[in-house]
Lab assay of single mutants.
Amino acid sequence: ELVLALYDYQEKSPREVTMKKGDILTLLNSTNKDWWKVEVNDRQGFVPASYVKKLD
């Protein structure tokens, strides 16, 4: 499943990933309501769920 980055996000820990507004990311896990695991540029990590939106 793919998600769209709604905002820029700068990683604050090694478990997170940086994304730019408009990026298309692969959603790996959305079981946590606050932090979703995504893959971007061959890196996996977490981003705030409120910063991304699922693409239909």
Rank of each mutant, 00 (worst) to 15 (best):
G45W: 04
W36D: 01
M19Y: 01
W36P: 01
D56F: 11
N29L: 09
G45I: 05
S30Y: 07
N29E: 15
L28Q: 04
G45F: 09
D34T: 12
S30K: 08
K37D: 04
A49R: 10
Y7W: 10
Y51P: 03
K21T: 07
Y7A: 10
I24W: 06
V17W: 05
L55E: 04
K54D: 05
P14M: 09
R15D: 14
D23P: 00
P14A: 11
K53N: 07
V17K: 01
G22Q: 02
S30V: 07
N32I: 05
A5I: 03
Y51L: 14
R15W: 15
P14T: 09
L27M: 04
F46W: 15
I24N: 03
L4M: 13
E1W: 13
V47E: 00
S50F: 09
I24P: 02
I24V: 11
A49K: 07
K12Q: 14
E39P: 00
Y7H: 13
E11N: 07
K20A: 09
L4W: 07
E39I: 11
V47H: 00
E16A: 05
D34G: 08
Y7E: 10
L2W: 13
K37L: 15
L6M: 09
V3Q: 02
Y9G: 01
N29C: 12
G45Y: 04
L28N: 03
T31M: 11
S30L: 04
E39H: 07
D8G: 06
M19S: 01
Y7P: 00
K37R: 10
M19G: 00
T31V: 10
Q10S: 11
L55S: 04
V38T: 01
V38N: 00
L55Y: 08
T18C: 06
R43K: 11
R43L: 07
L55V: 11
E1M: 14
Q44S: 12
S13L: 09
G22I: 00
A49V: 06
T18M: 04
K33N: 12
D23T: 08
S30Q: 10
G22M: 03
L28I: 15
D8M: 03
A5H: 01
L2F: 14
E16C: 07
F46H: 05
D8Y: 04
R15E: 12
L27G: 01
S13P: 05
M19P: 00
V38D: 00
E39G: 11
D23G: 04
D8C: 05
N41E: 13
S13Y: 07
K37C: 14
A49N: 03
W35F: 07
Y9H: 04
R15T: 11
D8H: 05
I24T: 06
K21H: 06
V3L: 14
V47M: 00
R15V: 11
Q10M: 13
D8T: 05
L6E: 04
W36V: 08
K21E: 07
K37Q: 12
V38L: 04
N41C: 13
L55H: 06
V52E: 02
E39L: 11
R43N: 07
R43E: 05
V40Y: 14
K20G: 05
K37G: 05
S13I: 04
E11L: 07
K33A: 12
L28Y: 04
V17C: 09
T18G: 08
W35N: 02
E16L: 05
K37Y: 15
D42T: 10
L2N: 06
K33G: 10
T31W: 09
V17A: 05
P48D: 03
K53D: 08
L28H: 06
E1R: 12
D8P: 06
T31S: 15
W36S: 03
D34N: 13
E16T: 08
K21V: 08
R15G: 14
K20Y: 10
F46N: 05
R43Q: 08
W35V: 03
K12H: 09
G22K: 02
P14H: 10
L25E: 00
N29T: 08
Y9N: 00
Y51I: 08
G22E: 02
D42K: 11
V3C: 14
G45M: 05
E1L: 12
L27K: 02
P48A: 02
Y51H: 15
E11W: 05
D34S: 10
L25K: 00
G45L: 05
K20H: 12
L6I: 09
L27T: 02
F46T: 03
F46D: 04
T26D: 05
P48E: 03
Y7V: 09
E39W: 08
Y9A: 00
E11Q: 13
R43Y: 04
T18Y: 04
E16F: 06
K20R: 14
Q44P: 06
Y7K: 14
L28D: 01
Q44K: 09
K12D: 05
E16G: 13
S30D: 15
L55P: 04
S13D: 11
P48F: 02
W35T: 02
G45Q: 01
V38A: 02
V3M: 07
D23S: 08
G45C: 03
N32P: 05
L4E: 12
N32L: 09
T26Q: 13
K33E: 10
K53E: 14
T18I: 03
D23Y: 05
A5P: 01
L6Q: 05
P14W: 10
M19Q: 02
T18E: 04
Y7S: 08
W36G: 00
E1F: 12
K37M: 15
L6K: 05
V38G: 01
R43D: 04
K53R: 12
F46L: 08
L2K: 15
S50Y: 09
L25V: 06
L2R: 14
G45R: 01
L25C: 11
R15K: 12
L28V: 12
R43T: 07
K53L: 12
V47P: 01
K54N: 07
I24C: 07
D56C: 14
L2G: 04
Q44M: 12
P48V: 02
A49Q: 06
P14E: 13
V17L: 14
K54I: 14
T31Y: 09
V17G: 02
M19E: 00
W36N: 01
D23K: 03
D42M: 12
W36F: 08
E1I: 15
L28W: 05
L28R: 05
M19H: 00
S13E: 08
M19I: 15
K37N: 07
K12A: 12
P14S: 13
Y7I: 08
V40T: 15
V17D: 00
D56L: 11
S50N: 14
K33R: 13
E39M: 12
L27P: 00
L55K: 04
M19L: 11
T31K: 10
S13A: 09
L6D: 02
W35R: 03
L4F: 09
D42S: 13
E39C: 13
S13G: 13
I24K: 06
D8N: 07
T18D: 04
Y51Q: 07
K37H: 11
E11F: 05
K20E: 06
K33M: 10
S13H: 13
Y7L: 10
M19W: 01
K53C: 15
V40A: 15
V52G: 01
Y51V: 08
V52M: 06
K12V: 08
W35C: 06
D34K: 11
K21Q: 10
E16K: 05
M19D: 00
P14L: 09
E1Q: 14
N29W: 07
Y51S: 13
D42W: 09
A49E: 05
D34H: 15
V3E: 00
F46R: 04
T18K: 04
T18R: 06
T31G: 11
L27Y: 01
S13C: 11
K21P: 03
V38I: 07
T26K: 15
V40N: 15
E1S: 13
I24H: 05
Q10I: 15
F46G: 02
L25F: 06
G45K: 02
W36E: 01
Y51W: 06
R43P: 00
F46V: 07
E39N: 08
D42V: 06
S50M: 10
L2A: 08
M19A: 02
L28S: 03
W36T: 03
V17T: 06
V38P: 00
